[in-house]
């Protein structure tokens, strides 16, 4: 019994780390937009939901496999980001937080209803992927689809980190997170900066939607769940660094997996969102936050 439980625990922890790896990518887009442009995007989860549906559509129509859908999803969501910025976010940059929330809740309503109209609220289970197989290390099973999703996520975050630290634009973004006024005085076109930030934020969402769709089903309410989850990760991480987001994501991935695996799959939301509220109470500024 003891050995069995050990195996189960190890297995659950492995699942948790994998989940966290994917959550990190989804949360990074949110943290970027919130940090750099100081913009509250309440509809972030709805964009993830939309990205999952699009990944589903692309994989059943064109690619036959969700693994290839980032090829379309990344540029598509970059474009959606640009459109969203020009159409909506641009007006909100200087608005008070309450107006930002109100307007992006409006976007949430629109996107959610759009998904309802197009897919009639039908849950779409992940299409079949050639990576839907696994190998085992001793008694531990390693599913290939989730391993792949986590690997892609880590590589992307690594590249993003390089971009933020090594390129002029990335440095401007990080600087903007600290002090928008100063960046603007330095001669950086903040409008263009925010436009690109929104684009990158949603491109990350597009990629994460594709990755999640390799192993998980999507429904129109997925938006709400991922929205809360990514905000919870940002709350824990603060707006510091890619590393902070990664650690916070893995903590939430572990909480998710342990709650489902060792307690009850129906209780995972109690654990995740209960943890979220506790974090807000105990650490209003996040673990690694600057603000």
């Amino acid at each position: 019994m003891g050995a069995d439980f050990g195996v189960q625990l190890l297995q659950t922890i492995l699942f948790g780390v994998m989940l966290g790896g994917v959550y990190a990518l989804a949360a990074m887009g949110l943290a970027l937009l919130f940090g750099v442009a100081n913009l509250v995007n309440f509809a972030h989860g709805e964009y993830i939901m939309l990205a999952m549906y699009m990944a589903f559509v692309f994989s059943v129509t064109i690619f036959q496999d969700p693994v290839l859908t980032p090829l379309f999803n990344i540029p598509l969501f970059f474009a959606i980001g640009v459109i969203t910025y020009l159409g909506i976010f641009k007006r909100l940059i200087k608005a008070p937080p309450l107006s930002q929330i109100a307007a992006t809740v409006g976007v949430l309503v629109l996107l959610r209803n759009l998904a309802l109209a197009i897919w009639a609220a039908e849950p779409k289970a992940p299409p079949y992927t050639v990576f839907a197989t696994s190998f085992s290390i001793g008694p531990i099973i390693v599913p290939l689809d989730k391993l792949l999703a986590m690997a892609v996520s880590f590589v992307t975050l690594f590249l993003l980190n390089l971009f933020l630290e090594r390129t002029r634009l990335g440095v401007a973004m990080r600087a903007s997170a600290d002090d928008v006024e100063a960046v603007s005085l330095m001669g950086v076109d903040t409008n263009r900066l925010f436009l690109l930030t929104t684009g990158i934020s949603l491109a990350l969402v597009g990629l994460s939607g594709s990755l999640i769709m390799t192993y998980q089903a999507v429904t129109p309410t997925s938006g709400l769940l991922f929205g809360l989850l990514t905000w919870a990760i940002v709350a824990l991480a603060g707006l510091g660094t890619v590393k902070g987001i990664l650690i916070a994501s893995i903590i939430f991935g572990l909480a998710d997996s342990l709650a489902s695996g060792l307690w009850d799959p129906r209780g995972r939301e109690i654990v995740l969102y209960g943890l979220f509220i506790l974090i807000l109470w105990v650490r209003p500024k996040g673990l690694f936050g600057r603000r």
Partner: peptide
Amino acid sequence: YPTDITDMAPIIERIRQ
């Protein structure tokens, strides 16, 4: 499992156990 389940991995793991 909940009607609106999105990830079956924990269930499969329990079956395996």
